[in-house]
């Protein structure tokens, strides 16, 4: 649940999602769910010429299981808070 909470705090921020098929999509994080499925609005695809099928797509839903990375806006991530929350969750694994 911890990572889900982190993504929730980042809604309406700009993120870049890199998929396992090497497609990179930048957009505004509109929502996320418990599976870390991600909804991005106003997207831009890296190397758009190689992905012509994405040209007409503005908003998209990405299945969590196909995500490799998400690049986060560092200025909106409180690393101290993250570490404390991670230690707390590690001490209380029932909430995982």
């Amino acid at each position: 649940m911890l990572i889900f909470s982190v993504f929730k705090t980042l809604t309406d921020q700009q993120v870049t999602v890199e998929l396992k098929n090497d497609l990179s999509i930048t957009g505004v994080l509109k929502s996320v769910d418990q599976f870390l499925n991600i909804r991005l609005d106003n997207i831009q695809v890296l190397d758009a010429a190689r992905h012509p099928h994405m040209m007409a797509v503005k908003n998209c839903f990405i299945r969590g299981s196909v995500v490799r990375y998400v690049q986060l806006p560092a200025e909106h991530v409180d690393t101290q808070l993250l570490e404390d929350a991670t230690r707390r969750e590690a001490a209380n694994p029932s909430k995982r």
Binding site: M1, I3, L72, V77, T79, L82, P93, R96
Partner: peptide, 23 residues
């Protein structure tokens, strides 16, 4: 990582799935 990749970064969070947040 799978997919012929390696990372080096400062670890700030993880969970039971081994999801990680690195800076």
């Amino acid at each position: 990582l799978r997919g012929d990749r390696e990372l080096s970064g400062v670890l700030h969070a993880y969970d039971g799935h081994m999801n990680l947040i690195l800076s």
